[in-house]
């Protein structure tokens, strides 16, 4: 149905693109071979954001990562927003398009966060319908990302890996596996991250995310990790990545750093570490 392959991102490290790094990247991107952008930041009419994106896209494969389609929303998708997404994808013909297993809009209101949903038969069929609509409109296969969770829904009847496997099968989409999100959710909901990876349909994974998290405590003094993307990737997350890659083989690896964004060399060092992790499974 879709001419575009699921993912033509290189089996190499990528970084979340931040405009302040534009000059550094154009001079020497180091071992970073591709970039991911948050789609909604490039939906203005013109000016610097789109000019930089065009320049970046002429040199590197781009992953367009949406944060506002609200795929997990109870209501219908925002057709106007989906049309904007198509305009952006048509403009730069990205190597990959991805969105989240989450909702962020309620009616006309946009809540600017990735909000959780219960895993039930009802939510499953709704999400598959939404993904159908996205893929049909964009004319390309998308990847759906596993969320980081802070709480559980008592009404859920599916485990997250099984739910995502079923979505991928029914909707014909690929998956984006965020290893930090797995670690955060596993700590918060007291399951084994290794078991989660073992149960995950790794054959559907077209991209892996890595990012930093913050540590807090819940009402009962239990650890509560927050997916903040504001620091270095934690050592246990690197260890979980190694386990994942050992099962999955090499995958495009993205480092996300979205708040308190450091200077380019700090990000480049994270990309180097991702490159080393890939080298271990490439040889």
């Amino acid at each position: 149905m879709f001419d575009t392959p699921m993912c033509s991102l290189p089996l190499a490290p990528g970084l979340g693109y931040k405009p302040q790094h534009f000059a550094d990247i154009m001079q020497d991107a180091g071992r970073t071979r591709w970039f991911e952008i948050h789609a909604e930041n490039y939906m203005g009419q013109g000016g610097r954001p789109l000019a930089q994106l065009d320049a970046l896209a002429s040199r590197f494969p781009i992953s367009v990562h949406g944060v506002g389609l609200s795929i997990g929303g109870e209501g219908p998708l925002d057709a106007e927003h989906l049309a904007r997404m198509k305009t952006l994808c048509d403009r730069i013909n990205p190597a990959s398009f991805s969105e989240h297993l989450a909702w962020s809009s309620h009616g006309a209101e946009y809540l600017n966060d990735l909000l959780p949903l219960p895993y039930t038969n009802a939510s499953l069929s709704r999400i598959c319908d939404h993904i159908d609509q996205v893929q049909a409109t964009l004319g390309r296969k998308m990847l759906l990302e596993n969320p980081s969770s802070y709480l559980a829904f008592s009404e859920s009847t599916w485990s997250e890996p099984d739910f995502l496997r079923e979505v991928a099968k029914r909707a014909g989409c690929g998956l984006l596996l965020d290893v930090n999100n797995v670690f955060v959710s596993a700590t918060n909901l007291e399951f084994s991250p290794q078991d989660y990876i073992a149960a995950f349909p790794l054959e559907e994974v077209g991209e892996i995310h890595l990012g930093g998290h913050d540590e807090d405590e819940d009402d009962h003094g239990k650890p509560l990790l927050i997916d903040s993307h504001g620091r270095e990737i934690a050592d246990p997350v690197w260890a979980l990545l190694d386990i994942t890659l050992a099962y999955s083989g090499p995958r495009p690896l993205l480092v996300e750093w979205d708040t308190d964004v450091p200077d380019w060399p700090v990000l480049a060092a994270e990309a180097d570490r991702a490159a080393q992790a890939l080298t271990r499974v490439l040889v």
């Binding site: 600017n112 966060d113 802070y150 709480l151 559980a152 008592s154 819940d218 009962h220």
Partner: peptide
């Protein structure tokens, strides 16, 4: 219907989302 791993309601966990939404909008 929002709980921790043991089925116990945990307002602080819901509070993470409440905080994320408000703080992200105020930051913007």
């Amino acid at each position: 219907g929002l709980t921790n791993a043991h089925g116990v309601p945990s307002p602080k966990r819901y509070g993470v989302y409440r905080n994320n939404v408000t703080v992200s909008l105020v930051d913007a």
